[in-house]
């Protein structure tokens, strides 16, 4: 009997999409595309229109389709690794925020690199005009980094929590070394500790982690 995917939850859908051994794998992806492609298309289209639709003579629909396909490539690759990263599987709103983050980044990259170099920097970043989209997704990356580093550090490392906080302030909040060292929490740490912490934690994120974070966050 063919299972109907129309009413399955986001949680179940992502489970099957990321399980290549499932008999329903392809059907789940079909439902995923049916459910989220219009939304991704809309995000890419809005981003594109905000940035530079008059700067190229390549047809509008082709460019949008191309970028939307790239978004799905990211989601499909490595057994749905980008979907595995997403934890808040009970929240469709948060998941749409996550998809919007990926779609926005790819649109920006595409326009900057191939179509209208420089144009992206000439107009206001519209992310601030879409409250609740990228911000909703951002904590997912925070959560991911914290969990990965805790797992890789083990229980014996004395300063794991301190080091994670330093790393996240640097990576996600763009604190400089001087800003970190000036904080009351870290005033007693020794010279070059911040540099060592950053280097050590970068090593704890493996190549796959780095690729996926770079792909999504432009890090």
């Amino acid at each position: 009997m063919t299972k109907s995917f129309k009413d399955i939850s986001l949680h179940e859908l992502l489970e099957i999409c990321t399980d290549e051994s499932s008999a329903n794998h392809q059907s789940a992806w079909a439902e995923f595309i049916h459910r989220y492609k219009p939304y991704i298309y809309k995000v890419v289209q809005n981003r594109y229109l905000a940035w530079g639709q008059k700067s190229t003579d390549i047809t509008f629909a082709d460019i949008i389709d191309d970028i939307v396909n790239d978004v799905f490539l990211i989601l499909f690759q490595d057994g749905g690794r980008a979907l595995q990263l997403f934890n808040a599987r009970n929240s469709d709103k948060a998941f749409r925020g996550y998809l919007a983050t990926i779609a926005n980044r790819l649109t920006k990259r595409k326009l900057t690199k191939y179509l209208i170099p420089g144009a992206v920097h000439d107009v206001a970043d519209t992310s601030e005009q879409q409250p609740g989209i990228e911000k909703e997704a951002r904590w997912q990356f925070f959560d991911y980094i914290v969990n990965r580093i805790r797992k890789k550090s083990g229980k014996n490392q004395k300063h794991t929590e301190r080091d994670i906080l330093i790393f996240n302030l640097y990576l996600l909040e763009e604190f400089t070394r001087e800003m970190i060292e000036a904080q009351p929490l870290f005033r007693n740490i020794g010279h070059r500790v911040v540099d060592n912490v950053l280097m050590r934690n970068k090593r704890k994120l493996d190549r796959d982690d780095e690729n996926i974070l770079r792909e999504i966050l432009d890090l």
Binding site: R138, W139, F142, D143, V146, E161, R162, I164, L165, N168, L169, E173, F175, M179, Q183, L185
Partner: peptide, 20 residues
């Protein structure tokens, strides 16, 4: 407190904003 800032993204955001 440091552990809490790693557990709670929203407190982390407030903390980083104030400390900035």
């Amino acid at each position: 407190f440091i552990k809490h800032l790693n557990d709670c993204y929203w407190c982390f955001k407030i903390y980083s904003q104030v400390l900035r």
